[in-house]
Design a binder for these strands. Sequence first.
DNA 1: TTCCAGGCGTATC
DNA 2: GATACGCATGGA
Length: 264
Amino acid sequence: MKKYIVKGRDIVFTQPDFDLDHTLDCGQAFRWEKTEGGYVGAVGRKELRISQDGDTFTLHDVSEDGFAFWSDYFDLDTDYGEIKKRLSTDSTLEKACAYGSGIRLLRQPAEETLLSFIISQNNNIPRIKGIISRLCDIYGGFPEASEMTGADVDTLAPLRAGFRAKYLIDCVQKLHDGTVDLGAVRSMPLDEAAAALMQIKGVGIKVAMCTLLFGFHRTDAYPVDVWMKRVNENFYPDGLPECTRGIEGIAQQYLFYAIRNGVL
DNA sequence: TTCCAGGCGTATC
DNA sequence: GATACGCATGGA
């Protein structure tokens, strides 16, 4: 467990290879907003304000039990310095890792990730955030899928999610009736896990891989969207380099952040 | 006005 | 199995 100091109602810790802008604005989570003093965001129904001063981070108004949750969420026990060192044997990844040096792969809840990335398809990030925010407004925080099983298109109309609403409904239905068992998905081989998720309408290979990477911490899942297609064509026409084996998804996150910001 | 956004389902060949 | 097209919505 990560070492920390309790200061009043806050918890303070130091952490290299961590930057809030990099980690919270790299397209893996959609519920964080930059504020004057850091970031405010939420996971499920847990809310957090976090601020950064160099390598020192403060979780505001958080108990020691709460810290255990957030420490896991921010993946604080993983050595990203070691990961970057390994990936940087490839010259393109070296650039990407240097640019997004503070990216960490968040350990997000599976259901929330699945529903969020269903919403993400053929959509832009500000509008994805808006739809998810309105979903949370309706349910008082991000709902469990089981709380949404009665939802129909009228219930979800305030989201203004467009054609994706019917996909959300199909998703919560198939989670509820056991067609898709996320507990079982967790332990399946990657391709089998993706195929299981793709039984849900609106879940194709890209949404499935994002769910496995961000919601199940399957670091070998490699989502390819329009940006990553460009990366593959420009830099890896013959496939990914050896150094990415088993952590293709983490490599993907550095590459995605870099190319989206015009660095590659 | 038209185009595009962390895609996918469907029709057609 | 490959390719083309429509899809809700809203910002650029």
